[in-house]
């Protein structure tokens, strides 16, 4: 797992010894989440999981979000849907239980799970696992990941280019999300229906309604894409 800081990254990279630092700084963070899901037959070949919990003792917020899209043509094997289901099951069966026993989560367990995923299953996916301020981004195939940044005068949207190591392999990134940052995950189908300017204009909402209005704006964006014949799903996780 590479924890070194990349040039231009808005989040703070995490050193190995920082992972087990005091929980206090994680307690103040809160997450807002939302998703977009298409209607009717456009939902074919898509899968989405969004799980948000707060650990009652210590109030550590934990979020799992992922979107998957099957490969095109006759090669559809439901691999993306099954992956999303296994990921969700893993989240509840292993991850939460582990976090109930340890002071800080070890996000590398997710990377271990991902490495077991068959590379030949033909689907693309983008996901994020957040525990407190720490996060792990994972992506494969054509799914896209954007960083939402409200820390400047105007909201800023920038695509995150995770290193690609081949079409079937997972690209991983780990770091800390600070206040004012968010992650938007899109399937390739969703991305093809909107432009960057439309995306930015739609997602520029004021700070007070950062989470709630963002979801309704995302729905507008998705329906805009649908009207152009595109289909796809998206999910976001923002700090507040």
């Amino acid at each position: 797992m590479n924890g070194s800081c990349r040039p231009g990254r808005a989040w703070k990279a995490v050193r190995a010894d920082e992972r087990f630092s005091a929980e206090a700084k994680d307690m103040g963070i809160q997450y807002g989440t939302g998703h977009y899901w298409p209607r009717g037959e456009k939902e074919e070949g898509l899968a989405l999981t969004l799980q948000q919990t707060t650990r009652a003792r210590g109030a550590l917020p934990i979020v799992l979000a992922c979107v998957c899209e099957e490969g095109p043509g006759v090669g559809r094997t439901d691999g993306g849907t099954r992956f999303c289901m296994r990921l969700t099951d893993w989240f509840y069966e292993r991850a939460l239980e582990r976090w109930s026993r340890e002071r800080m989560p070890d996000l590398t367990i997710l990377s271990g799970e991902l490495s077991r995923e068959r590379e030949e299953a033909f689907f693309s996916a983008a996901g994020i696992l957040c525990a407190g301020q720490h996060f792990l981004l994972f992506r494969r195939g054509r799914a896209r990941v954007f960083l939402l940044n409200r820390r400047f005068l105007r909201p800023h949207l920038k695509e995150i280019d995770l290193p690609r190591e081949g079409s079937g392999r997972w690209a991983l990134e780990e770091g800390e999300l600070q206040q004012g940052l968010g992650i938007l995950l899109e399937t390739d189908g969703f991305s093809r229906g909107v432009t960057g300017e439309e995306r930015l204009a739609c997602l520029a909402v004021d700070e007070r309604s950062w989470g709630q209005r963002l979801e309704s704006r995302l729905s507008e964006l998705g329906r805009m894409g649908e009207s152009r014949g595109a289909g796809g799903a998206a999910v976001f996780v923002v700090t507040r």
Binding site: A47, R57, T88, S100
Partner: peptide
């Protein structure tokens, strides 16, 4: 996806204190 979550919820119900407050549990697919 509800299977593991349902089992966890039941396990938590049987416990003295819940460890987690579930805020969102969403799965869409096929």
């Amino acid at each position: 996806p509800g299977a593991a979550w349902g089992e966890l919820r039941e396990a938590l119900r049987r416990g003295k204190e819940p460890d987690y407050r579930f805020e969102k549990h969403l799965f869409r697919g096929k």
